[in-house]
């Protein structure tokens, strides 16, 4: 048999074998992605907090603060969405629910911050405190 034919057969065999095997989701890889998503979301929550505080102290104009918080909302949403698309390993089923819940909270809260920014309401202390608490929680959850 010619070497080229052998090579093609080997390649086809490998391809078919690969198609036939469903890889078990890797727990370590999921942990890494979850940590990255939590860290990204924490960064966005802290950014929204700082943008609102700066706008409240009249250190930025409204368009600047709104753009910052809107971009933070978009990035937090992307972090949550990216992780939610990854198949959860069996060993991480419980952890995954907690992590995804925390990420959803981040998206919701930054969305609320964006709405406040659009309305020019920068001095909602309850919102600022909630952003602080969530940023801390996300930081602690991301190892």
């Amino acid at each position: 048999m010619r070497p080229a034919v052998v090579a093609v057969l080997v390649a086809l065999t490998l391809l078919l074998t690969a198609c036939g095997v469903v890889a078990e989701p890797d727990a370590a890889a999921w942990d890494e992605r979850a940590a990255r998503a939590l860290s990204d979301a924490g960064s966005q929550v802290a950014t929204a907090r700082l943008a609102l505080e700066s706008a409240d102290e009249e250190r930025t104009w409204s368009a600047y603060a709104t753009v910052l918080v809107a971009q933070a909302e978009e990035a937090a949403g992307k972090a949550a969405e990216d992780l939610s698309r990854v198949q959860v390993p069996t060993a991480r089923a419980d952890d995954a629910a907690d992590v995804l819940d925390l990420l959803d909270q981040a998206v919701d809260l930054v969305g609320e911050a964006r709405a406040h920014s659009v309305d020019g309401e920068y001095d909602d202390q309850a919102l600022l405190d909630a952003l602080d608490r969530l940023a801390d929680e996300l930081r602690r959850a991301a190892p």
């Binding site: 960064s43 943008a51 971009q71 940023a135 930081r139």
Partner: peptide
């Protein structure tokens, strides 16, 4: 100190 990563020009 606040754990903010820079991803936008606004930041």
């Amino acid at each position: 100190p606040t754990g903010i990563a820079v991803e936008t020009l606004g930041q």
